[in-house]
Nucleic acid binder design. Structure first.
Lengths: 343, 343
DNA sequence: ATCATAAATGTGCTCGTGAACATTTTTAAA
DNA sequence: TTTAAAAATGTTCACGAGCACATTTATGAT
C-alpha cells in the first residue's frame, strides 16, 4: 500500500501543537520547549514525515544560480564543445525549476582561470561547477568558496587536496588500462608486436590526463606482456603523417590518447593492418571507424558528463538530496557494430 | 540574461482580462470570447509563457498511478530481479512527486499475462509500464487501453503492431552482431576456429530474444567469415558440463546468449583457451570474468532500463514532456579492466 | 503580587495554478 | 423594452511549506 503523505498540519494535530512549532522542529529553528520538541519528534518519527518538496520549492520561488567555470572553446574543441552541450541541455531541463547558469569562460592558463574563478565566487552563486586547472595557489581560492559555503562540483579533473562536493569524470589511468586490454585482444600475442602511444594535437590543459592514460596503458602491458616494446610520440602540429613515416616502422598497434585519431587517416590508408584505438565519437573519427582504419573508439561521453555535473548540483540545491561524491563514468567501448547506439 | 518567468497574473494584466480567462485559454477549457481569446493568445506568444510546473503539481496533489505489468520472478532470475530493482528505485525517486506504482505480476504464459494486463487496465491507471508477451490476441487488449487513453510504456520487448508511447530496451539483433565482432577480435582469423552459440538455462519468455541475438551473431560471421562453422546448443537443465563434453570438441569460442554463462565454469576450467562472451553482470559471471574463464560480458543494464521506463512515464505524466518513442540502450562491453565502473 | 522581559507558541499571508463558484454581460424570445 | 437563459468573465479558496508577525505563557527581579 501506499504510505499516506503527511503534512505539517497532520503532525501538528497529532502532537497537539501548532503548525509553526512543528515547522520549527523540522527546520531546527529553535525556540521550542523541550516538552513540545519531544512530542513533535515522536510523531515525526512515528509517521516518517518527509517534507513536500514541491510545496517547498514553490514557496522558495527564487532562482538558484550555478556558476559554470569552463575553458573557452570553439566547435573544433570537440570535448569541451560536447561538454558544453550537455550543460546547456541540463540548463533547459532545470530552468523550469528556477536553476540558472552563469558562465565564466577562461583561457587555458592559470591566470585566466584564477580570475574567472574569483569572479564566480564574488557573485555569490548557490553552487559552482568547474573544470579546474590544477596548481598550488588554487587552494586559497577554494578556501574563499568554502568560507562562503558554496558547494563546488568538479568536472573533468579531480583535485583530491580540496574539499569538493562532487566530481564527475573518468579515471584516466583505468581508461589506459582498458585500452591496453583491448589492444592486447586486437593484436594477439605475436612476438613481433610493436606498439605506439600517440599523443596527437596535444593541448597543455589535457597533458596531465594523457599522461595518466599512458601510465595505465603501459602498466597493463608491463603486467601481462613484460617484454613488449612500447614507443611514445607526441605531435602538436598537423603534419602527422610525414613525421610518423619518418620516425617509425613496423608498428602493429597505435593507441591515440586524444580525440585527434582522425589525423592518422592518410597514414592508416597506407598501413591498413595496424590496429588503432582512439577516443571520442568526433564525426571524423566515426568516419574512420566505419572505414576500418580505426578499430575501437573509447567514448568519454563529455556531453553526459556536463549534464550530470549540472544535474547533480541542481538536485542538491533543489531537493537537498545526497549526491555521490564521485561519479566515475564508465568508458564506453565503441566499435562499428554498436556505433549506432551511441550517436 | 535570464528570461523572466511570467505568471498567469502577468499575462492577465497585459491582456487586460482576468486570470481566470487566461487560465481558460491556456488550458483550452472554452467559454472564452473570440476577442479575449485573441488578446490573450497574442500576449502568451509574445512573452513565451510556460506554466509553472511546480505550482501545477502542487495544486494537482493527486497521486498518479502507474501500473507495472512484469513477470513474477525470484532472486535467481537476475534479469527481472535487477529490472525490478530499477523500477523500485524510480518509485522512490518519483514517489516524492505523487507517482505511485501498482504491480501486476504475471506467470510467464499468455493467459496469466492477459489476465494481469486486463486487471491493470480495469483499475484505470494513469499509465502502464509492461514487459509484454507477444501474441496475436494481445492487440484487442491494447485497444482497450487505447480506448481509455492510457499511455503505455513497453520494456524489454517492442511490439511494432501496436501503438505504444515509449519503448525501453535493446536491439537484440545488434547485440548479437556486436558479440560476433568482439568474438572475431578475440579468436582472430585462424581457419581452425569453431564457434558455438549456447542458449543456457533457457526460459520460454526469452526465446524470441535469444533467437534474435543468434541471428545477428550469425549474420555478422556470414558477412565477414563466410566459411566459418557455427554450432548451436540449447540446454535448459543444469548439467551443462557433461552435455558439452559429450556433444562437442575443439571449440575455440562460445557465445552464451543468456545470463547463465557461469554454468560453464567447470567446463571452462578444463578448456582454458576457449574464448567466451556472455551476458549480464551477475555475481557468478563477474567471478568467472575475473578468473579469466569469461572474456567479455555484455551488460544489458536491466536496472537502468527499469528506472528509465518508469522515469519516462513519470515525466510525461507530471510535466507533459515529450519522451522519446524508442530508447535503445547501448550494450556495454565489460572486461576485467572496466568492470569496476559498472558495479 | 506586580511588572518587564524573554521564551514559546500560534496565525496569517505568500508562492502559481486549477477549479468551483459568483458576478456581469450578451443573446434571443416574447 | 422586458426578461430569462446562456455565455463570458471575474473572484476566491485550496494545495503544503516557510517565514514574518501577533499572541500567549513562563521567568525573574523588585
Amino acid at each position: 500500500m501506499t504510505p499516506k503523505k503527511y503534512t505539517l498540519q497532520d503532525i501538528a494535530e497529532l502532537a497537539q501543537v501548532s503548525r509553526g512549532t512543528v515547522d520549527r522542529v523540522v527546520n531546527k529553528r529553535g525556540k521550542v520547549s523541550k516538552k513540545a520538541q519531544k512530542k513533535v519528534e515522536d510523531v515525526l518519527k512515528r509517521l516518517d514525515y518527509t517534507p513536500n518538496l514541491i510545496a517547498r520549492s514553490l514557496k522558495r520561488n527564487q532562482n538558484l544560480v550555478i556558476a559554470v567555470v569552463i575553458p573557452i572553446h570553439n566547435e573544433h574543441d570537440i570535448y569541451w564543445h560536447q561538454c558544453a552541450q550537455g550543460i546547456a541541455e541540463a540548463e533547459r531541463k532545470w530552468g523550469q525549476f528556477g536553476i540558472i547558469l552563469k558562465y565564466f569562460h577562461y583561457h587555458k592558463n592559470q591566470e585566466s582561470f584564477a580570475s574567472m574563478f574569483s569572479q564566480a565566487i564574488e557573485m555569490d552563486p548557490n553552487a559552482i561547477l568547474m573544470a579546474p586547472i590544477h596548481y598550488e595557489e588554487l587552494k586559497t581560492l577554494f578556501s574563499d568558496a568554502e568560507a562562503k559555503d558554496i558547494p563546488i562540483g568538479l568536472i573533468n579533473t579531480p583535485i583530491e587536496e580540496i574539499d569538493y562536493m562532487t566530481f564527475v569524470g573518468q579515471d584516466y589511468q583505468k581508461s589506459g588500462r582498458l585500452a591496453a586490454q583491448l589492444m592486447a585482444n586486437l593484436i594477439g600475442s605475436d612476438p613481433h608486436n610493436k606498439i605506439l602511444v600517440a599523443h596527437l594535437g596535444v593541448d597543455t590543459d589535457h597533458a596531465v590526463h594523457l599522461h595518466a592514460k599512458e601510465k595505465g596503458f603501459r602498466a597493463y602491458f608491463d603486467e601481462h606482456f613484460p617484454g613488449l616494446k612500447i614507443d611514445t610520440v607526441s605531435y602538436s602540429s598537423d603534419d602527422v603523417v610525414e613525421n610518423m613515416d619518418a620516425d617509425l616502422s613496423n608498428i602493429t598497434g597505435i593507441y591515440v590518447t586524444t580525440s585527434k585519431t582522425h589525423l592518422l587517416s592518410d597514414y592508416l590508408d597506407k598501413h591498413p593492418k595496424i590496429k588503432v584505438i582512439g577516443y571520442d565519437l568526433v564525426p571524423k573519427n566515426v568516419v574512420q571507424l566505419q572505414q576500418g582504419n580505426i578499430n575501437i573508439l573509447l567514448n568519454q561521453n563529455p556531453k553526459l558528463q556536463g549534464d550530470t555535473g549540472i544535474s547533480s548540483l541542481a538536485e542538491h540545491l533543489l531537493y537537498n538530496t545526497d549526491i555521490p561524491q564521485k561519479r566515475l563514468f564508465p568508458i564506453d567501448i565503441v566499435m562499428t557494430e554498436n556505433l549506432e547506439s551511441y550517436c
